[in-house]
Design a protein around this nucleic acid. Structure first.
Length: 886
DNA sequence: AGGGTCACG
DNA sequence: ACGTACGTGACCCTT
């Protein structure tokens, strides 16, 4: 049986554009919409195996519909140029792939599809129409199905006439009547004002069509009758506009739409031109002919690699002083537990692969010496990870000078793919073999034979070597050399030291705490099952929603994409209605503590050291902050007493020592005061006032003693909002007030803090001009969406423009403090150790005899890390565990 | 794999 | 028309 797929090109590319994040190739072309479209195309072909295919496009702006209604599709926003640029790209790609396309002056894609689907159906074909537009439902029949995109374009939901009936209670042809009555704002089809989908459906269920409604208008009454009578003409016209014309005279036959798979000669080059590499691979196509555009698929990089053994190790050792790049291949996400697969030492002339087993022999002494001698500079990709992996294999390591991953992060901290392979592509170097092809993936992971492995790793190492000079140049150009060499590189070594040190967790107390939680959780479970009159999985939002909103009939406050929302905010609102809700809230709190912080933490305690060794990631957060994994020690509970107890199990690793913690007070608002140079904000900090109270005084125009807790709370929320890049909506949500009230708050705030207002508008302007924002130390974040025509995307980017310099500068400052602190500890030969960083806090373990010194030294170094126009205060505290250090 | 929820700054 | 406060990571459930 022949199967024809007809795609509404305009509809799909439009949806793909808004669904996909912005994407540009190395030539700077926007390609996200084409990419999304193509992805959808590949999937639909795989799923439906068509014999015929065609993509229809609208041609020009004026169609026959404008003859009867010149405002048709009026009032639409102009298509953003980022999208319109992609039409020719898509059309060229379709041609390359060998997929028919068609457009006809004066008609829309709908009409072409309507006409062809009718012809095809008559010729005995099965037809599938793909669109994002429900109008297409009118075409459905026994042999014509409609595939509607969901969630952008990633999912297609297929409708036949029965399913349409289920959804609307209408026959396909009645969809035009539906549109006639309710109109369609996106096409500027008026319909009858005041009649929406619900009313329209009711009328059609009763009468059947627009004409029948009008003929029986006497049966209606009141406002509705009046509205329909006044707008009867509009309804008829709207129906006409919404009706797809299925009698277009076409000069295209079904034979021209035959699809026998992608054109083997032209598909590869067409995809390569756009740089859709993953699709090339997916289709096992070669992009050879597209090479002229600088994109290679197959690696052409030829590296000679010497596999070192006991016989040739002497020669290799003589080459060690010339080594430029080190590559230690690790396996496993957590570097503290990673295996070492193999090691490559590269210079321009040589690539030497040293099997890791060789490190354990006596021959390796000079290699170990090279690794730990800081006089030999270490360059490579992710030296931090190598350092940790080597450390747990008892190999000391020192002398990091250039980390390619770290440089890549500074050059573009938002790039999620910072693999060596992606960097090779960025700098136009020969590409690498896909790692999965070498190692397999998931359960199929396996280290290949030595020839394959040594070759692959040498290629990676050689690529890293070629990337370094390009990055040096780019860092120089972006004025980031100092940020890189004097801050991030030294910090990477410091972080590795902190992680190796780890923090002691008192297992026994943690297990005790776990038992307490366990019995409380058990009790709560019983109560909940009893009240709900039945067992269910409380952890399943789906089952919980069923119980709360169906079985118990509580009011639905908020919905998620998939069903009822049951988050804490919703539950708080429901608490007065039913006693079960309090229990569920309590259960949630305890279950979280138990699974994440008791069980989770216990799993992370190293059997070797009895400590937890987190892994700080220096290349994740777009603002310059660190992140922490395995376990995350930056989100240990503190706000609620129950959870805060967890902190009691973090103890010093030596008896008689203390935990000392120091945190910056209001660092972000102080940074804001500095960069905005706002008079009032600066004054507030110079007087060292409680900033939220001060803000409340100013905004509400009251004396200090008149600030009540509610005013302070509001002021605090405004201050947070300011730091986050304020929006009236966000503030209204946070304070549970109307958007209008929030808007007034913000206005009042800006009337007082005019410098802040000025900063907010200046920074957005700067971002729009430069395409990026920077922190005080020159850290950069690109905001490509700052000029987007899509309101949402643009607004996001604007808030990031406001927030990133603040959050990022605060991150710069504590990183500086860490570098200074590390130096002070070693210069003064102190035994105290820096263990943790929690964004604005540093945690140490300190011996008794250094406590008095550290209580002064730590806050001093932190507050002097960077000179601002306002003082930077750090508050210090200590105790026998992290809980006590408060 | 992705969504929901919740822990932190 | 759209649906949002900024930055993270871990756990659980569902697909």
């Amino acid at each position: 049986m022949d199967k024809l797929i007809l795609i509404d090109g305009n509809s799909i590319i439009y949806r793909a554009f808004f669904a996909m994040p912005p994407l540009t190739n190395t030539k700077g072309w926007h390609t996200n919409a084409v990419y999304g479209f193509t992805n959808m195309l590949l999937r639909i072909i795989e799923d439906h195996k068509p014999t015929h295919m065609m993509v229809a496009f609208d041609a020009g702006k004026i169609t026959f519909r404008h003859e009867s209604y010149k405002e048709y599709k009026g009032g639409r926003n102009k298509t953003p140029h980022e999208l319109s640029e992609q039409f020719p790209l898509l059309k060229e790609l379709l041609q390359g792939l060998g997929i028919a396309q068609y457009e006809l002056s004066g008609y829309e894609a709908d009409d072409i599809i309507g006409t062809i689907s009718k012809e095809a159906e008559q010729a005995g074909q099965e037809v599938l129409v793909i669109s994002g537009d429900k109008d297409m439902f009118q075409l459905a029949s026994e042999h014509v199905e409609i595939g509607l995109t969901r969630k952008g374009v990633t999912e297609i939901e297929i409708y036949n006439p029965e399913q349409i009936h289920e959804r609307y209670g209408l026959k396909p042809h009645q969809i035009t009547d539906l549109k006639g009555l309710m109109g369609d704002t996106s096409d500027n089809i008026p319909g009858v004002p005041g009649v929406g989908e619900k009313t329209a459906l009711k009328l059609l269920h009763q009468f059947g069509s627009v004409e029948d409604v009008l003929a029986n208008i006497h049966e209606l009454k009141g406002k509705m009758k009046e509205k329909i009578e006044t707008h009867a003409d509009d309804a008829v016209l709207s129906k006409k506009l919404a009706t797809i014309y299925r009698e277009v005279v076409l000069d295209k036959t079904l034979d021209e739409m035959v699809f026998n798979g992608f054109n083997p000669d032209t598909s590869g080059p067409a995809l390569a031109k756009l740089e859709f590499k993953s699709m090339l691979e997916r289709l096992s196509l070669s992009g050879e002919a597209g090479l002229e555009d600088g994109i290679a698929k197959q690696p052409t990089l030829n590296v000679e690699v010497t596999v070192i053994n006991e016989d040739n190790i002497k020669e290799f050792i003589s080459r060690l002083p010339q080594v430029k790049v080190l590559h230690v291949e690790t396996y496993g996400e957590n570097p503290h537990r990673a295996e070492i697969i193999g090691v490559v030492f590269s210079s321009e002339e040589h690539h030497d692969y040293v099997p890791f087993d060789l490190f354990k022999t006596d021959h390796a002494a000079p290699i170990l010496n090279w690794l730990q001698d800081p006089a030999y500079p270490k360059r490579g990709y992710d030296l931090h990870r190598m350092d940790l992996a080597l450390h747990w294999h008892e190999i000391p390591f020192a002398g990091v000078t250039f980390d390619v991953q770290l440089a890549a992060y500074l050059l573009d901290p938002t790039e999620s793919n910072q693999t060596i392979s992606a960097l090779a592509a960025k700098y136009g170097l020969s590409s690498l073999v896909v790692e999965e092809d070498i190692f397999g993936k998931g359960a199929k992971y396996k280290v290949p034979e030595i020839e394959v492995l040594s070759n692959h790793l040498a290629r990676k190492s050689a690529t890293v070597l070629s990337i370094i000079p390009k990055q040096e140049e780019e860092l120089e150009k972006n004025e980031m050399k100092s940020l890189f060499h004097d801050l991030e590189m030294p910090l990477s070594r410091i972080l590795a030291d902190m992680e190796k040190q780890g923090i002691e967790v008192y297992t026994k107390d943690l297990q005790e705490l776990g038992k307490e939680f366990e019995s409380q959780i058990h009790q709560l479970e019983e109560d909940i099952y009893r009240i709900a009159d039945g067992k269910f999985n409380i952890n399943s939002p789906k089952q919980l929603g069923e119980i709360l909103f169906v079985k118990l009939g509580l009011p639905v406050v908020k919905k998620t994409k998939t069903g009822f929302s049951t988050d804490a905010e919703v539950l708080e609102k429901l608490a007065p209605y039913h006693e079960i809700v309090q229990h569920i809230l309590q259960y949630r709190t305890l279950a979280k503590l138990q699974s994440t912080y008791v069980e989770g933490l216990l799993k992370e305690i190293s059997p070797k050291t009895g400590k937890v060794h987190t892994y700080y990631r220096q290349t994740i957060a777009a603002t310059g902050r660190l992140s922490s994994q395995f376990p995350n020690l930056q989100n240990i509970p503190i706000r609620l007493e129950e959870g805060r107890k967890i902190r009691k199990v973090f103890v010093p690793s030596e008896s008689g020592w203390s935990i000392l913690a120091a945190d910056y007070s209001q660092i972000e608002l102080r940074v804001l005061a500095h960069i905005s140079n706002d008079e009032r904000l600066i004054e507030a900090f110079l007087q060292d006032m409680d900033i939220h109270t001060k803000t409340a005084m100013d905004v509400f125009g009251v004396k200090p003693e008149e600030v009540d807790s509610n005013m302070r709370r509001s002021a605090k929320a405004v201050n947070f909002g300011i730091v986050y890049g304020i929006s009236d909506y966000g503030l209204s949500q946070n304070l549970n007030i109307t958007r209008k009230e929030a808007s007034q708050f913000i206005e009042q705030y800006f009337a007082i803090f005019q410098g802040v207002k000025q900063y907010m508008s200046d920074i957005v302007k700067e971002a729009k001009e430069n395409g990026y924002v920077t922190t005080l130390l020159g850290r950069r974040r690109y905001l490509p969406e700052i000029n987007a025509s899509n309101f949402n995307l643009r607004s996001f980017a604007e808030r990031m423009a406001m927030n990133t310099p603040i959050q990022g500068t605060a991150a710069d400052i504590i990183k500086l403090a860490m570098v200074h602190m590390d130096k002070a500890l070693s210069d003064k030969q102190l035994k105290s150790r820096m263990l943790l960083q929690v964004h604005d806090e540093l945690v140490f373990e300190v011996p008794e005899d250094e406590l008095e010194l550290m209580k002064v030294l730590v806050p001093e170094i932190m507050s002097k890390a960077l000179q601002l126009v306002v003082p930077l205060n750090a508050e210090v505290s200590f105790g026998s565990n992290w809980y006590e250090a408060k």
